[in-house]
Simulated scan of single mutants.
Amino acid sequence: MPSALITGITGQDGLYLAELLTSKGYDVHAIIRGQNNPKLELVQRLLPDVRLHTGDLTDLSSLMRAMRDAKPDEVYNLGAVSFVAYSWENAQVTSDVTGLGVLNMLEAVRLYAGDDPSKVRYYQASSSEMFGKVQAVPQNESTLLWPRSPYGVAKVYGHYMTINYRESYGMHASSGILFNHESPRRGPEFVTRKVSRAVARIKLGLQESITMGNLDAKRDWGFAGDYVEAMWLMLQQDEAEDYVISTGETHSIRELLDAAFAHVGIEDWSDLVLQDPRFMRPAEVDLLIGDSAKAHEKLGWKPKVSFEELVAMMVENDLTEQKVLAGL
């Protein structure tokens, strides 16, 4: 039975990945931060077979203990301070966890592997936010990185550190440059879930409007459940490489609103959506769209869930959840 260790288990990617690996017969371990983590109960309920280890990406000794106890064949580093807007307010914390945390995890893997650097296969969760002020459309593995947020800068550091450990020590270390991927498990602070939940509440008469920032920003949105399969496929390759994972389609926030409101039978949402400068980014990333030709060719990976299906899935989930919460 192969063994895997996941950081960031409480996020949507960690939950979907743990389910995937469990279904494939893996002995799945995960690092969870803090003894009173508010999402601990969720993880234990959804993933009762996953063995949890207390640790923190900013604490190398805790990562080394987790490596020793889990004895993993594969490590998936998904842990990060991942809310972009938060990164401007807490740039140092974001840098420590999202950037230096990668170095700590890589070092823990290297020390555990000892004289056999490829003993453990390592996956690093890189991000399309690294492209920032995009220098080419669409973006692929060779596109110049120009991050536009502290989060993006921290992800670039982790991305290049992964490449450096691969080239310096011969580690089987791959990075997945994942474009935006969403699901019903997405946190409510992210724009897709903010929209799906608000639309559900508006439809149910529980709120009157939603307040947004820039409606013209465009993103390449896919389903998180599809994207974790690409992570696994990367670590099954003979050679470690970096891959862009995306749908190759771009949609604006306006189109997101169109799809979400249309799903509940509302065609004209103009009076239901307000805009507030507080929700505008200091430096906006206007257009992200990925070229996943390499992943298609080498991994045999393609997304299965369309943008419209993804939005419908999220709105349906929030309709059900809000009905229960409101006692409807």
Rank of each mutant, 00 (worst) to 15 (best):
M212V: 10
A312M: 06
D291N: 09
G8I: 05
E167L: 15
E19D: 14
A108Q: 00
I163N: 10
R110M: 07
A70P: 01
A230R: 06
T192G: 06
L145G: 11
I9Q: 02
I210H: 14
V134G: 13
M314P: 08
I31Q: 00
L103Q: 11
T211Q: 07
K298P: 11
D27P: 07
V153P: 13
L319H: 09
G101D: 00
D96N: 07
F261E: 10
L272V: 12
L325W: 11
G290D: 02
F279Q: 15
Q44T: 04
L78Q: 01
V75C: 00
F261I: 10
Q275N: 10
Q236V: 05
E189D: 13
D13S: 12
S126G: 08
G213M: 11
M231Y: 04
A217Q: 09
L287T: 06
V199N: 05
I245K: 03
A18K: 05
Y151D: 08
V134C: 09
L40N: 04
A283N: 15
H53A: 00
F223T: 12
A66T: 00
V75L: 00
R148W: 07
I253C: 13
A260T: 08
E107W: 04
R148H: 05
S127G: 12
L103D: 06
D69A: 01
V191Q: 05
F279V: 15
L145I: 10
V305H: 03
G265Q: 12
Q207G: 15
H53F: 00
E297F: 09
E309L: 07
L256I: 05
V134W: 04
Y26H: 04
L328M: 14
L178K: 14
E316D: 11
V264S: 10
S270W: 12
T94C: 02
Y151L: 13
G14M: 03
N180E: 11
D56S: 01
E308A: 14
G300I: 02
P48K: 12
G300P: 05
V153F: 11
L57V: 10
K302R: 03
W232E: 13
A312W: 08
A4I: 01
V109I: 07
N180C: 12
R65Q: 11
L52G: 01
V324A: 15
G187S: 11
V191K: 05
V305R: 09
A198E: 05
V93I: 04
V109G: 03
R68M: 00
I289R: 09
S95A: 09
P117M: 04
L144M: 12
Q236T: 07
G11L: 02
K133M: 12
A4W: 01
N37V: 01
P277E: 08
